[in-house]
Design a protein around this nucleic acid. Structure first.
Length: 270
DNA sequence: GTCCATGTTCTTTA
DNA sequence: CTAAAGAACATGGA
């Protein structure tokens, strides 16, 4: 569910309550959301203070006062919420960290997400491409020219560029006026420049609106985002394009729904 | 019952 | 061998 803007919103809403606070108790309801699977998370976390909370791609990274790190990935349906102690725990809550008089809860019905222990030796960016908010056109061009996959599919590859998912890949391609099915290596320099800028514009706007809530997403205070109201193409199949009124098309690429305006994102440019 | 879902990883195919 | 395509994971809502 959560892509870069949602994860960024979550860390911003969590920071004031978590920074420099001690994890007093660890409650594990499902051991199988913890990776590697034999990690003794209780020993690692109990009585440690959280010294920094960061985002890398879609990962939420916790830095501890002993220099160890771990990250939480929310997968498709995960939530990370802060609630007053003793308030009812939602179903599918797999991990609770008691911090001050609150509970930090990891809740994830589909369990595609998890908690990943890094310790002091592993880096959270081992398997991630560059950050999209700061990437330069030259670097994006260099990476895209190595693959013949559809540009939409390439943008969702976290090793190529980190943080974009199905919503923001579609939205960025619309803003750049690029057809999602064009092979990545076929984009010309002006298109790459436009795409680089569009990615940043779309993500920054989405962060400003606190992310998109289609169904599952909530920030750490359980509040939905608002950016879905500004979607130009995502989940708008059959509805008129805001620019030209042509109905938005839905196709499947890489097994994922892909939405675009056949006129504003025509293959042949004019 | 069917299809679909904001993601990633493993397996199969070319 | 490698890149790309497809299937799998688990749950719930329309």
């Amino acid at each position: 569910m959560p892509e870069l803007p949602e994860v960024e919103t979550i860390i911003r809403t969590l920071r004031p309550s978590l920074l420099d606070r001690k994890i007093e108790r660890v409650r594990i309801h499902r051991q199988d959301v913890i990776h590697p699977k034999n990690t003794d998370l209780t020993s690692h976390l109990t009585n440690r203070a959280i010294t920094a909370l960061e985002r890398r791609g879609k990962k939420i990274i916790f830095n501890l006062d002993d220099n160890a790190k771990f990250y939480i990935h929310l997968g498709m349906s995960g939530r990370l919420t802060l609630a007053a102690a003793q308030t009812p725990t939602p179903p599918h809550t797999h991990l609770i960290l008691d911090i001050a008089s609150s509970e930090l809860r990891f809740t994830d019905p589909r369990r595609f997400g998890g908690i990943f222990w890094l310790g002091t030796n592993q880096s959270p960016d081992a398997d991630l491409g560059p950050e999209p908010l700061t990437i330069q056109p030259k670097e994006l061009a260099q990476r895209l020219k190595k693959t013949s996959r559809a540009i939409k599919t390439a943008l969702m590859d976290q090793k190529l560029i980190a943080g974009l998912g199905n919503i923001y890949a579609d939205e960025a391609l619309f803003t750049a006026g690029i057809h999602p099915q064009i092979p990545a290596k076929k984009l010309n320099p002006p298109q790459i420049a436009s795409l680089t800028q569009s990615i940043k514009t779309v993500l920054n706007r989405a962060i400003h609106h606190r992310g998109s809530t289609l169904r599952d997403y909530r920030d750490s205070n359980n509040q939905p985002g608002n950016f879905q109201k500004n979607h130009q193409v995502y989940d708008r199949a059959g509805k008129p394009c805001a620019t030209c009124k042509t109905p938005i098309i839905r196709i499947v690429l890489g097994g994922r729904s892909t939405h675009f305006c056949p006129k504003c994102q025509a293959r042949k440019r004019n």
